[in-house]
Simulated scan of single mutants.
Amino acid sequence: MSNDNVKTLIATFDTREAADRAIEHLVQQYGIDRSDVFVEATGSDNTAGTQPSGGDVENREGDGVRTDAALEGQLQVSVDLALEDVDKAQAAFRDAGARDVSSR
């Protein structure tokens, strides 16, 4: 998507669970095409966020927090969307727990 009627919205999340929830809301609730949504680490290291969540919380034995999760930094979700969809995408990001939301 590259024209004057399109904007890229970017948000950072502390957990993969929150990033996944934002993506789910964008696609399922608001009808944003999944191919216009991207997720990546904010830095150069592989990461699942900055704190355990979801499958990273308990080990297989169920007796404690896993210690092998890659908790090396925040995750960034970006979405290319039409200008009329910016408000609903911002709401989806914030509802999912975004730390920062910006656009370009």
Rank of each mutant, 00 (worst) to 15 (best):
N46P: 13
D20S: 09
G54Q: 13
E84D: 15
F13R: 00
T8F: 03
D33R: 13
N5T: 02
D56F: 06
T67F: 01
E58Q: 14
S53M: 04
D68A: 06
V37R: 02
A91L: 14
G64D: 12
D56V: 00
D4I: 05
R94G: 01
L71Q: 05
S35I: 12
A48V: 02
F38A: 09
V57D: 00
Q74L: 02
I32R: 02
G49S: 02
S2W: 03
D95W: 04
A22P: 01
E58Y: 14
D85R: 08
L81P: 06
T50D: 11
P52F: 01
L26T: 01
T47W: 09
P52N: 10
G55H: 10
G73H: 07
Q51K: 13
P52M: 05
G43Q: 12
E17W: 08
D63Y: 09
G54C: 02
D56E: 08
R16N: 02
G62V: 10
G31C: 14
T50N: 07
V101P: 03
G97R: 04
V86G: 01
A89L: 03
A91M: 12
L26F: 03
D68K: 00
K88V: 15
A92T: 03
N46K: 10
D56S: 01
D95M: 04
G43M: 10
N3D: 15
E17Q: 13
I23A: 05
E61H: 08
L75P: 08
D68Y: 12
T67W: 10
